[in-house]
């Protein structure tokens, strides 16, 4: 799978990760995949709600070393 863009939100807390994600997704085309790296536990519950609302697809969510969560989102 080709990742179109990586958004580094490590160290950021609510609301910055979701604000940055919303802005970044606006600049992508349909079918593009955004990789989001974050450390805020809140994003884990905010992101599925946001994807459900916007119609974008949460492809995967995995915990990496160092408290980082990697999320892949496909633009609708």
């Amino acid at each position: 799978m080709e990742i179109t863009m990586t958004l580094d939100c490590k160290g950021l807390s609510c609301p910055m990760p979701m604000m940055k994600l919303s802005k970044a997704m606006k600049g992508l085309n349909s079918g593009d995949v955004l990789e989001m790296l974050g450390t805020d536990p809140g994003t884990k519950s905010d992101l599925p709600h946001w994807c459900e609302k916007t119609g974008n697809e949460l492809l995967s969510q995995e915990d990496l070393e160092g408290g980082v969560t990697r999320m892949l989102i496909k633009k609708k």
């Binding site: 580094d8 490590k10 160290g11 950021l12 910055m16 940055k20 450390t39 915990d63 990496l64 070393e65 160092g66 408290g67 980082v68 969560t69």
Partner: peptide, 12 residues
């Protein structure tokens, strides 16, 4: 809102 950040004592 970008730049150096650190995460310590995590338990993922």
């Amino acid at each position: 809102s970008s730049g150096k950040s650190y995460t310590w004592f995590s338990a993922s």
